[in-house]
Computed example of a mutant assay.
Amino acid sequence: MCRALRDKGVPFLFLSAGGNQHPLTPREFRAAPHLAMPFEPSQLKSVLQTLIGAPTVAPDGTTFGNAILDMLGPAERCVLAPSLERVALRTGERLEPPGQPTAYVYFPVEGLISMFTGATAGTRIEIATVGSDGMIGQGVLLGDLTAGEALVQAAGSAWRIASGTLQRLAELHPALRHHLLAHIGLALRQVMDAASYGGRATIVERLARWLVQAAHRLNSRRLAITHDSLAEILGVRRPSVTTALQALEGRHLIHSTRRAIVVLDPRGLAARR
Rank of each mutant, 00 (worst) to 15 (best):
N20Y: 04
Q21E: 14
P23F: 13
P23Y: 12
L24W: 00
T25G: 02
P26Y: 03
E28N: 10
E28F: 07
R30T: 04
R30Q: 06
P33Q: 05
H34L: 04
L35F: 03
F39P: 06
S42N: 11
V47L: 15
I52F: 07
P55K: 13
P55F: 07
P55R: 14
T56Y: 03
V57D: 02
G61P: 03
L69A: 08
L69F: 06
M71Q: 15
L72M: 08
P74Y: 06
A75D: 09
A75N: 08
R77W: 08
L84E: 09
E85P: 01
R86P: 02
V87F: 01
L89W: 08
L89K: 10
G92Y: 13
R94T: 11
L95F: 06
L95Y: 04
P97C: 02
P101L: 04
P101I: 05
T102H: 13
A103N: 10
Y104F: 14
Y106P: 03
P108E: 07
M115L: 15
G118M: 10
A119H: 11
A119Y: 06
T120K: 09
A121G: 14
A121N: 07
G122V: 01
G122F: 03
E126N: 10
T129F: 01
S132L: 10
D133F: 12
M135W: 01
I136H: 02
Q138M: 02
G139T: 13
V140G: 14
D144W: 00
T146G: 00
L151S: 01
Q153R: 14
